[in-house]
Write a protein that binds this DNA or RNA. Structure first.
Lengths: 261, 261
DNA sequence: GACCAAAGGTTCAAATAATGAACCAATGGT
DNA sequence: ACCATTGGTTCATTATTTGAACCTTTGGTC
């Protein structure tokens, strides 16, 4: 692992509930030597990716990240483009909808929206990377993304986050094959207990999935009727998002989606 | 310069009009060896900070940046908090208002808003780092920020971006001293031609400025009346933003601002 | 207020990872 | 078919990163 990766990984330890991280905590979280961590922190801070709280001496995510995010959004306004579609689908279904983009062997949340009409809600954290093997989005990504993804994911053991998580390589391969045929993915409590999800792939200009759109529903509310409603609208919405992002849905998948409708 | 800094600096070459950068262009922009740049690009891409367009082979800013920005905004919702205040001031004055945070020896735009009621507008680019010596925001930062800032800025030659840019170290020191007395900074066409600005400091919990709020006006519209109007509201707004960010305005500056009103 | 523990931070020889000149491959224009 | 340009790779050399040990500061306790 290169120096750059080690340093950038430090940034991934922030999450809600861990807003500020000290040197010692970073050491335990990253498993690296204190001196190494310290120099990396200093260098990240010098570049504005972190900032140090002078009182607690803890480190926080810095302003450079916001600036770069603004640049990216300006150059490639994915969030802005996708937001209204996600909101529309969320209110149409009354459930949580999220769009994620692939980031290596994970999915990185781009945006999410919850209709907030129910008392129980799916907790969704835009800070958290989604694993490919445990989520509906991940299965959709594996099915329609670059070919090397599935073998890469299977290189390591698949960690289980619930009792339902798929951890068997053979089973995962079967499921992914199935997703290729169906044109969408369904996962029941694979990542979080009591949450079931549907997901469909989003494409770039290369006919390879670059991300996914998903609906996450508390398992209790995932009735047959709800499943039907989601299946009826998800492919069309995925195609719409792909189109708005300047991508192209592969012809064979277009056919699958049309046949299902 | 460490490896991390070299790699992160690659990200700073993106700007409106340069959405995608190829290997060779990166090499010329950064002045580093092609092999070095290439490995850095690969590693940044592996971490989601860049993504490669498979058609053009060019690199774009990646999704990890958006995710981290969402995390930061959630942990420390500066943008969200500041946005309504900036919008209010912008519409009140009918001119462009921006808030920036310090990022090393520069200021990093956090948010800006333009009332858009005039035909001529100040161009403001949230992608661009603002120099401390040439902008009103920078002068406010130098005056009320950490003590080491001014000497650090004066270590290198001060580049001029307009004919009005302050490049003389002695003159800059005088101006900064002056800003300390006034409680705000005024710069006429120091960074961009035909733009004049007022700026006031924003404070963290350590009585040291962490950023600035500024009003940028086309020089033609910067009449005495406009100056009076800005001076009348800027300190109060700066105090409000500081307060909302959980900071404290130093007592002596509070007095200066009160006396001016 | 003296003591202690824990966290932050620094040093320097040893080791590892970064470097860059040269080379290869692919693309596109003439 | 040729050449020019860009993207990408190799491998010996070099310089940067590394980490055990050490120092400093902070905060709590008796």
């Amino acid at each position: 692992m290169g120096t750059i990766t080690k340093a950038l990984n430090l940034l991934n330890h922030f999450c809600p509930g861990r807003a500020e991280i000290g040197l010692t905590e970073f050491r335990t979280l990253s498993g690296q030597d204190k001196a190494t961590v310290h120099r990396h922190l200093i260098e990240l801070a010098a570049n504005g990716f972190l900032e140090q709280n002078p009182v607690t001496r803890g480190y926080r995510l810095g302003p450079a990240i916001l600036r770069l995010a603004a640049v990216r959004e300006r150059l490639f306004p994915a969030r802005t483009i996708v937001a209204p579609i996600v909101e529309r689908l969320a209110s149409e279904l009354g459930e949580l909808v999220h769009v994620s983009l692939r980031e290596g062997l994970h999915l990185s949340p781009l945006i999410h929206h919850d209709a907030l009409i129910h008392g129980t809600r799916v907790y969704f954290d835009e800070a958290e990377l989604l694993p490919l093997h445990a989520t509906a989005s991940g299965h959709a990504m594996l099915a329609f993304g670059p070919e090397h993804l599935l073998p890469d994911v299977l290189k390591d053991d698949l960690p289980a986050t619930t009792a339902h998580t798929i951890t068997d390589p053979v089973r995962l391969t079967e499921i992914v094959d199935d997703v290729r045929v169906c044109g969408f993915a369904f996962v029941d409590q694979g990542f979080e207990a009591d949450v079931s999800s549907f997901a469909a792939p989003l494409f770039g200009d290369q006919q390879e999935a670059i991300g996914t759109i998903a609906v996450a529903v508390p398992t209790l509310r995932m009735t047959d009727d709800m499943k039907r409603r989601i299946r009826a609208v998800l492919p069309g919405t995925a195609a719409e998002v792909t189109d708005k992002l300047g991508g192209v849905v592969p012809a064979h998948l277009k056919r699958i989606w049309a046949d299902a409708a």
